[in-house]
Design a protein around this nucleic acid. Structure first.
Lengths: 339, 339
DNA sequence: ATGAAAGCGCTAACAA
DNA sequence: TTGTTAGCGCTTTCAT
């Protein structure tokens, strides 16, 4: 392994001079810089990131946890899109992204905590906060730096970026109500996630505004697999009276629901209207194209990473909680546009 | 920060003893172990991963590059599934996963090289090898450890895990030929990837076997977005004579193609048969359910990570190149089953 | 403008 | 069984 000492020897300077050349220190003469750089090139030297981390007391890495449940609840396009945003910013600031995978929530919390405790990462970006989140509680108890993508229940002092889930769901459901729908089914994700809770709240708000009671028979929390979307869609369509519209917490659900509707010999949008969430790349290609809520996933990822890095650099971050807004993209899965 | 010295002081032993307790060294008496562990708990001590890495000359991390193009070429379900496999194994062996994101290939190569050169990672797992891959060439030239998921062109000495792309494509196309199709369109990914090359080869082999000439008008290499799948599907359907079947290099393409077929007032499978690739979770929920090639993505990820870690531990890995087999899942998008 | 020396937190010979 | 010591590769005072 080529070290700073080797370079020093070849360039006939001291190790500290080499170190100063690496960080482009002002008080080193151009000629020495040249000489040292030449030696580095000649020897194929590259600074050892670990040695630097040790002395700087910083791994220069951001932690991320991909849980089996996060993955399914959030659906894949969401995950890879937010990752792209986070990665972009991390790259810009020369931060490494450390990814831990976990099979369940307990594991997720353990892995996350371990990453910060062992100093593998300087801070954590959390992707799917729960209504009662152990990991978040532990992190803030120990003052480990973290940024949440989503809303945290009952905590003031933390950093977070989120989209306006309540408002978004409200707008989507209002759209259906405006079109005359009154029996609106809601296929939501697991209720332990705050974003699912928020979307449910938006759903309720809209119904309430139109004087429609929330009928629990029309609301489902899906745990996992896309087969369930299909099954639940079928089940809801068999209810009497059957819902005339579906609000989905994820565009991916539309594939199963579309199929369920067709199998019941019903048509979209004539018999059943559908609104999705996320505006995945394929939403426009479904038949009929899916009306859905577009949220700035990539932007959220970028913002979360920017916040995290700013916090780690001791900068003041205001406001500590940022909400990015979403937009309802109206296509053809609900029929005519509302006036 | 709580260090090993603090623990030593509290437990009234030397730092080396504490170190030995951490690694559960045999020659430490139970009573001392107890005492030290108590002190660790009391002080909230956690071993500093970076300091350990420095002395061990190993970051205990595996590098992974998520390129914008990898992402789209491979499609998302593929990526997150292979990540799950890799993560599972990494976690088992206490390896960190370091993820770099890149916008294009040049960047990808640069990032990958940097990760190993700076010792941020001990080795690299490469996800979408190209026909002429600079990164792979550089890595092997410098003897940096890496494992490839896919096939590498013209290289003997490297580790790789792959699925049988040629065979898989051959089987899929043969299935269509057996059903009587002779004009079979192929929507492939960018030809710079070896896996696309291989699938093309399998496609040609099957046609050849049936004495059907490969007609370039029916073969397309798609670069990127799902909108293209739809557009290309449309375009191919307008050809005279029009293809009676589609072979897709990715299930996600089916969404756009299904739409294109419907818009031309054609039916699947009566007028046009479709075979996909990957067996994504939603393939079974399309209308009609998609016949597709199922490849063991999760297994491939696990295998690649196991290989990488074995190599890093200096173990002999035989065979250095592993091929996992795939299976054609016959559903309803091609009509009656072949005899 | 440059060098000498100490030390980041840990491990691993070598002693005892 | 345990302690002493040196050092991993780098940065950073403090000298010069």
């Amino acid at each position: 392994m080529v070290t700073i000492k080797d370079v020093a020897r070849v360039a006939k300077v001291s190790p500290s001079t080499v170190s100063r050349v690496i960080s482009d220190h002002k008080s080193i003469s151009e000629s020495t810089k040249e000489r040292v750089r030449l030696a580095m090139q000649e020897l194929g030297y590259h600074p050892n990131y670990i040695a630097r981390s040790l002395i700087k007391c910083s791994s220069h890495a951001l932690g991320l946890i991909l849980s089996r449940s996060t993955e399914s609840a959030f659906s894949n396009p969401f995950f890879s899109e937010i990752l792209r945003g986070i990665g972009k910013v991390a790259q810009k600031h020369q931060y490494t992204l450390a990814l831990a995978t976990a099979e369940n929530y307990k594991d997720e919390a353990k892995q996350g905590l371990q990453m910060v405790m062992e100093r593998r990462v300087d801070g954590l970006i959390l992707l799917a906060p729960r209504v009662n989140d152990d990991l978040i509680r532990e992190l803030s108890r120990n003052n480990y730096p973290f940024v949440v993508v989503g809303r945290v229940n009952g905590m003031q002092h933390h950093y977070a970026v989120n989209n306006d889930n309540i408002q978004a769901a409200y707008t989507a459901v209002r759209h259906l109500l405006n079109l005359g729908h009154r029996r609106i089914a809601f296929l939501n994700g697991p209720s332990e996630y705050t974003f699912c809770q928020d979307r449910y709240q938006g759903y309720c708000m809209a119904l309430q505004e139109f004087g429609v009671a929330v009928d629990p028979r029309y609301v489902r929390n899906l745990e996992n697999h896309h087969e369930d979307d299909y099954r639940m869609g079928k089940e809801l369509l068999k209810q009497k009276p059957r819902p005339t519209a579906f609000f989905l917490t994820d565009d991916l659900m539309a594939i199963g629901v579309y199929r369920a509707v067709k199998e019941e010999n019903l048509r979209i949008p004539q018999d059943v209207a559908v609104v999705g969430f996320n505006d995945d790349a394929f939403a426009n290609l479904l038949d009929p194209p899916l009306t859905t809520v577009q949220i700035p996933i990539y932007e959220m990822g970028k913002t979360a990473a920017e916040m995290m890095i700013a916090v780690l650099h001791g900068k003041e971050v205001t406001p500590p909680q940022k909400i990015l807004s979403s937009e309802l993209i109206i296509r053809e899965s609900c029929g005519a546009k509302a006036r």
